[in-house]
Design a protein around this nucleic acid. Structure first.
Lengths: 252, 252
DNA sequence: CGTACTATTGAGCGCTCTCAAAACCAGTGG
DNA sequence: CCACTGGTTTTGAGAGCGCTCAATAGTACG
């Protein structure tokens, strides 16, 4: 059982405009004045170290979080130490939307590597949104987007084979990194094989075997946690990507 | 391939105040004046027959829908007639939140039995919410709730056995019917075994076998589509329900 | 009463899990 | 530098759950 470290957010200013703003308002046009107001709401924190938590399941909800750099995993702790990984969150992605419902967090969020995180007090965001219809709409969209993405995940877990799941996972990672201007073919897995398996509903051994197989078949080269994709089309085929209706995959 | 029937909503008044309102604003206090405004936004439609669609995947988004009576299934049509069932929606439940993201529906919604449905034009709802902070907050909560429920489904599909999935499905149906004052132990399955299996990530045959087994073990009695639960505690045990943190399961 | 669909039941197979062991890696302290 | 330790990853062998294929039975509807 990992020890419970409570992190405190000092309101430190870091050279990071637009980190959270990307997630919140890039797709629509807010006036520069409005963006100024929004920026004043966002808090920056010191860098967090691997293993630290943004919040724990059951804790009172006060803020959303945006990953600036690094990565975060969200999970629901279950009985006797077991857990269900709900997602991995890369730079630019928003965390904590599940907590609005009951005003406390329904999952825990744990930092996977040294990460910079922005905090957005939800109440202030909500107040701001009251006066900015476009921001209000953007919030609805972000929540809705989360629903769509989870629905895609339901499809993955319900119908796809182990091979398709891991391939789809890697393609997804690649695309999301690409959105932030990072390499789509060459990246570091900040999560363990165990966590990948947990997330995809597979045993660790299955994940490991698949990595080996993908490498044998020259779809990628993997060294420990470093992955280099050699054939993206090949991976996409394995993932069972159907080129139809790709439109709503490239949102925000 | 089912034929595409376009339904038209006439603005028929039916003796149904509070059907959609339950879903939208029961948990919080709106003034009666505000509720009046909200009610004027809601359209009632003629009853829909089994097989009719509320909307199709890809269609332009204009309204949310609330089930008044009957039931609706949402699903994403995939290549060559296959489909992934995303959910079954019972009276009082809201449909269409996934469409806010990209302004068109990312799934289709099909009526499973003769049903009464209320339509809520989203743009008007959004405008109204701009002026009613409590309604605005309630909308955030509804979206968030959907996220939490899908996360629970992810857990079910990722970690649970076939037996646990079907048991959890029946317990969930029972609880949701109970919220509307309907019998929690004696109900009609409006969906086919095939659709249940699709939803739970199981083959039809597996679902059928499990129904037989549950009956043999006296947890329930099933006749075609009619289910009578004989031992709710038994079912809950099968479902792997852990009595811890039940708090955020009984939301709205 | 025939047709089409849905549900049930059986038999066999395959994918993925479980169990087990070895290899590898990171950190610690001698 | 190296041995020691705990954790992670890899690889192998076997078993079981749930799928597939197939046949029968039951139900709805014209």
């Amino acid at each position: 059982m990992t020890q419970r470290k409570i992190i405190s957010f000092e309101n430190i200013r870091v050279a990071c405009r637009s980190c959270s703003l990307n997630a919140l308002c890039l797709p629509m046009g807010l006036s520069s004045d409005d963006i100024e107001k929004l920026e004043n709401v966002i808090k920056r924190s010191r860098p967090l170290q691997r293993g630290e938590h943004l919040f724990y399941s059951g804790e009172h909800f006060h803020s959303l979080f945006v990953v600036k750099t690094g990565s975060v995993k969200t999970y629901t702790p279950s009985t006797e130490g077991g857990e269900q990984v709900l997602g991995f969150h890369l730079p630019g992605e928003l965390i904590g939307l599940d907590a609005i419902n009951q005003n406390f967090h329904s999952c825990s969020a744990r930092v996977l590597e040294t990460s910079a995180i922005c905090e957005i007090p939800f109440q202030r965001l909500e107040e701001l949104a009251s006066n900015l219809p476009s921001l209000q709409h953007q919030l609805y969209r972000l929540l809705s987007k989360e629903i769509v993405e989870e629905a895609e995940m339901l499809m993955l877990l319900g119908k796809r084979s182990a091979e398709e799941r891991l391939a789809a996972f890697l393609v997804s990672l690649s695309q999301r990194l690409g959105k932030r201007g990072l390499s789509t073919t060459d990246f570091h897995l900040s999560m363990s094989r165990h966590e990948i398996g947990n997330y995809l509903g597979l045993a660790v051994e299955t994940v490991s075997r698949l990595f080996s197989r993908f490498q044998d078949e020259n779809f990628l080269s993997v060294d420990r946690k470093h992955v280099k994709i050699l054939s993206m089309p090949g991976l996409e085929t394995l993932a069972g990507i159907t080129p139809d209706q790709p439109s709503w995959r490239e949102s925000n």
